[in-house]
Nucleic acid binder design. Sequence first.
DNA 1: GACACCCGAGCAACCGTTTGCATTAATTGC
DNA 2: GCAATTAATGCAAACGGTTGCTCGGGTGTC
Lengths: 381, 381
Amino acid sequence: MPATIRDVARASGVHISTVSRTFSAPHLVNPETRSRVMACAETLGYRPNRAARALITGRTHNIGLIVADIANPFFPPLIKAAESQARHRDYHIFVADTNEDAGAEEELVHALAKQVDGVLLCSPRMSNSLIEQLSREVPLVVINRQVTGLPAVVMDVGQGARLAVEHLTALGHRDLALLGGPRGSWTSREIRRAATAAARSAEATLTVLGPNPPTEGGGTAMAEQVRRAGVTAVLAYNDLMAIGLIEGLDSLGVRVPQDVSVVGIDDIALSRLTRPKLTTVATPTAAAGRTAVDMLLQYDPDHPAASRTGRGGGRTTAGDDRRTTAQVMLQTELVIRDSTGPGPAAGSGRTGTATTETGPGPHHGAAPEPQVADPPEAVAS
Amino acid sequence: MPATIRDVARASGVHISTVSRTFSAPHLVNPETRSRVMACAETLGYRPNRAARALITGRTHNIGLIVADIANPFFPPLIKAAESQARHRDYHIFVADTNEDAGAEEELVHALAKQVDGVLLCSPRMSNSLIEQLSREVPLVVINRQVTGLPAVVMDVGQGARLAVEHLTALGHRDLALLGGPRGSWTSREIRRAATAAARSAEATLTVLGPNPPTEGGGTAMAEQVRRAGVTAVLAYNDLMAIGLIEGLDSLGVRVPQDVSVVGIDDIALSRLTRPKLTTVATPTAAAGRTAVDMLLQYDPDHPAASRTGRGGGRTTAGDDRRTTAQVMLQTELVIRDSTGPGPAAGSGRTGTATTETGPGPHHGAAPEPQVADPPEAVAS
DNA sequence: GACACCCGAGCAACCGTTTGCATTAATTGC
DNA sequence: GCAATTAATGCAAACGGTTGCTCGGGTGTC
């Protein structure tokens, strides 16, 4: 029922190869013929079958995007941005959810491999060695993780954690806690490393609690332990946990920020809407999605900005595996709202290094967005 | 580099057709041969190329899912559920975002058509006639809309709106407002119709304000008008708008629920986390996603539960277009939290028809989930 | 006027699978 | 012991495109 290339060829009285070229290499066909073919294609409603094309070109114009949990509010903005960027470049995007399960991740990469030109692996829970191995099957870009030899885009959560700790110590807090994230999370380790260091420089103590599930429930469940730890400020692995913690503390009669200050990470939309509004480290999730797609498609021979001279010069030769191995790091920033306040050692007030939010204005547009071609911070490995 | 069926055939010393049958019709091949082939396939890491298979079978084992806005918290649970259900049946899912743009919807259906076995159209903004036309190009299941002759799954927002209005009037409110949703939304019309009728029966007035963008900002922007309208209770098109409205009212010095009661629709995760916690109409979004996938795959010949006798009996003959046209309606329920309170005409208290939430328990599991095979409420058209 | 050249179009092989049909060997019935 | 059936496999034609190659004919050059 749907029109094929043969139908168009018949209708316009040319060979199918001419029709093919009309679409994939217009300069090779006489303008007159070309317009006739295009007219026929138009009236027949012809669209080339991408699967068939992929069979011979080896390029599917599809991308896989694997995330831990679609419903976790951290991911939708990233998915949206990635999808949008992909579509601008005429790519479609498979989205898959692993439910935080490393096994599912592996299986999904295998299942998707033949159907996509590359896979975006978001906050993977797999081991690095498995990721490396999978990357030999299909091009991979890792988000929120650094894997030696693989292109990656990560948020500088280390910097964010440091800013958060500095903010808290400047407010006069001396006894801090860190609510860790899920086991196997690169981000969680990174936060811990940076927060510990920052606390040490500020001569404050830092109690690490975790690992925990990265959900609201994970935060709520820790309220009791936080109270028992006798700390006056808490940095949580993400906003969801921070919000859950505030809920939990509230039901224990502990007030935020009067009794305990809480800082989240991610700046999900939700954090602007809770009471108190959450002080948090904003991570440029949308930018990460866009950047990751750009990195994956960097050498797309169909794309004008491709590395090739322009006209696709034949099939990629074997050994041409010089895909970028750049690792892009995106800046984070501290957004101070209402969940943090002065600590017992009466601090001077607010730190000067961070953004203090004045209105509901979209500080989103200010997120740094590097060009992949010349990453602002390429980390050695 | 990746192993093809030919590699496996060579390695196991049989013809490629035998390898093919080993996977797609195992009963036709000698058990001994079969296990040898499977062993070879295993060691070579062979996975059949789905695109190639699709070329000849006509079945891609892919589904398209088109939503208005991935980042709108209403959608992620639906996407997640649909993806999960699809994967259980060995389908992959393309997700696309239209940014609330009808033109993008049409283009996406066209672009996806050849690559999928069907498309789930979520809260479409297109005209009904265009949708019908597109459904001749690729099987469609519509979510949150009723289109004559097309399979659909809708939430019974009419019932929800009625429950909400009854709840408010029972509390003693006599002057209500409705914050309408986006133009072209079936749901918005449905809510308006039911709310108007319910208000009339309760001898209350209902002012309709809108249409509005279905976002937090859309709600905030209407705060002034709501105050000016002199109403004591508001039903919003969705939770996001309700929350925005509460914010807006708050900054005008209007307290919720003391001065004005607010009810949302959807029961997104967020609505449990704001202060005051939002009274809202819970819609079974996850169930909708699962059900829609089931409807689309209902006659999947590969699936054990398919309508065919079992073994796929050859190609579908032309004219076998008896895809279900059932329209499934999912029940909604009112969840009473803290954003609604007594009105000026001192009411009796709480209505008896709804769920009053006692704890943070997951009332989610209670969502009704009909079997497609025998829909509980099939609407005539 | 012969030659080299290029433009435009056709030919046919190929991508990785599926599947109707033909072929062979083994089994059954009588 | 022979025809008829059945089981297991091979053969080759699709599916819808792409692309290196061939080929005819018009043009430009000397």
